[in-house]
Amino acid sequence: MWLGIWLAVAGLVLGVLLGLNIPLVLPQVYAKYLSVAALAALDSVFGGIRAAMEDQFDNTVFISGFFSNALLAAVLAFIGERLGIDLYLAAVVAFGVRLFQNLAIIRRHLFKKIK
């Protein structure tokens, strides 16, 4: 249980270090896609942690969910830009809601375990 969280945190730190050290600056135009993709990844990580706590974790579901979520969010952002509608807001809202739900569930599981 704790090992999973520590591994996730270590991965996050490693990723941040990697990202800061890669000498590559994405063009401004892609900033929106990147932000949505980051949000999708965040959602997947929280979802994964929750699933692991509930012992329902499925590797395939987790990985495919991560990539499909990120992809869908990016596609939504792209289409929204073409149509002149901020469609990526839909992804932001959906992921945000799920983020908080997952956080709440994780919190409860943690409390249960501590008690």
Partner: peptide
């Protein structure tokens, strides 16, 4: 559960990279 944790860690790495990139892009903007 190790494979699950490993894939979680991998996604966390990707998430970290994305967040760091986004930070830099935002600062750039």
């Amino acid at each position: 559960k190790l494979p699950a944790y490993l894939s979680l860690a991998l996604v966390a790495v990707v998430l970290g990279i994305l967040i760091a990139f986004q930070f830099r892009v935002t600062r750039h903007i």
